[in-house]
Design a protein around this nucleic acid. Structure first.
Lengths: 224, 224
DNA sequence: CGAGAATTTGAAATTACTCAACTACAGTGG
DNA sequence: CCACTGTAGTTGAGTAATTTCAAATTCTCG
């Protein structure tokens, strides 16, 4: 647990207090934890399962910001008075989360100043990742973006199988499209193409990367 | 100064100490403050002038992350041990900045815990903005993205002129392309088109928005 | 004035989207 | 156990958006 970026340099006692100050909530598959636009009152920590954060456009499209797995905090924005959640969050599969009210967060960060630093660290990492994503969306073609997303998901949730790396996440073409800023048709075509050359195998809702190394080649900037 | 998000709820004395703990640096137009990949050792605050943050792709393209004006902090990532700057920063016009070493930052945040909260706030705002940008890049067409960038720049650096709102920033087609994830050709075409219908006026390096209201219409999601 | 950089514009090529039709699959209830 | 239904996925054809490349033009600065 000490290895968790949020709990870095906090001893057992402190950690115990922090966990005790939080509330446990269980969420069923698909259940929303909060909605975009809601007053941001709670900061969350994922204990079990996965949570997805997505932003809705005014015309109803979704943009999938990230999947959050066990051991990660989200909605740190709730530490700030009068903020609203900029995204909605939804359980993917059944999930257990811990949450703290803003007041509690303030008390905790005052008692354990290193907690603030840790939160800063988490957010800084986050910013770096978003910057990379902005760079990718700005400069890379769809195929490459899809390749990168698959590799990232494999890294985060991957499970080794005899015939490749399974992305252990119920994931649709639509989801991949929302992650890469394209349409489900283009995702479908791209995956079909990769399947034809034996790069991946996909059945409904699942993807297995048969040859990660070759997918990496596609994902990299290869200046011709 | 108290109205600055970074100095929120800090009194004059504290503010004085914080400023005194920083070092002043002057930068000439175009001078780099740090480079992407450098060890992140200092956090900065813009006193005068403007600074731009850009990320380079491996094949040498630039992506312009943001322009930072007076009163804003950047490179908070330096608060974190062993981090590297994920972007380069460069003065746009002559600029004056204040900076603190990581150690100083740590001392300051310990002495003034509210400073941590303020930093969190700044970063949370930042994250929200990046999420919006990701959404825009994922779902909107180039024309709309350009419109939004012009309006944002006008908001941040705008000056009222008799014939419209001047974006008070030496800005090239290339810059706009790097901000919107498109090519300088498309930017040029789009601006020409807007100029033809009297929406804007542009000379080399400058843009005046003649009819902001109509540009807003273009910038908004208008579900047909 | 001249040189280099920024900008504009046309034309062709490419990428990705849209729409529509079709197929495959999983779960339900008889 | 199987037919049924709705959702997920595939694919083709046409189209729209954007990029690419090349060539001209304009601007700025020394």
């Amino acid at each position: 647990m000490q290895s968790n970026p949020l709990f870095h340099e906090l001893n057992e006692t402190a950690l115990g207090k922090i966990v005790q100050a939080g509330h446990l909530a269980r969420k069923l598959d698909g259940e929303y934890i909060f909605f975009q636009g809601d007053p941001a009152l709670r900061t969350y920590f994922v204990l079990e399962g996965k949570v997805k954060l997505a932003q809705l456009t005014t015309d109803g499209q979704q943009v999938l910001m990230e999947y959050i797995g066990p051991g990660r905090v989200f909605a740190i924005i709730a530490a700030i008075p009068n903020a609203r959640y900029p995204v909605s969050s939804q359980a993917v599969g059944d999930a257990a989360v811990l949450f703290w009210q803003r007041e509690t967060m303030n008390v905790l960060t005052e008692s354990y100043p290193v907690l603030s630093t840790n939160l800063l660290r988490v957010m800084a990492t986050q910013i770096g990742e978003f910057q990379n994503r902005i760079r990718e969306l700005s400069t890379q073609r769809v195929e490459r973006r899809i390749a990168r997303v698959l590799l990232r998901l494999a890294r985060q949730t991957g499970r080794k199988l005899p015939d490749g790396e399974l992305i252990d996440l119920e994931i649709s073409r639509q989801d991949l499209a929302e992650m890469t800023g394209t349409t489900l048709y283009t995702v479908s075509r791209t995956l079909s193409q990769w399947e034809n050359v034996g790069l991946i195998k996909s059945r409904r809702g699942h993807v297995v990367i048969s040859h990660p190394h070759e997918l990496v080649l596609l994902a990299e900037d290869t200046p011709k």
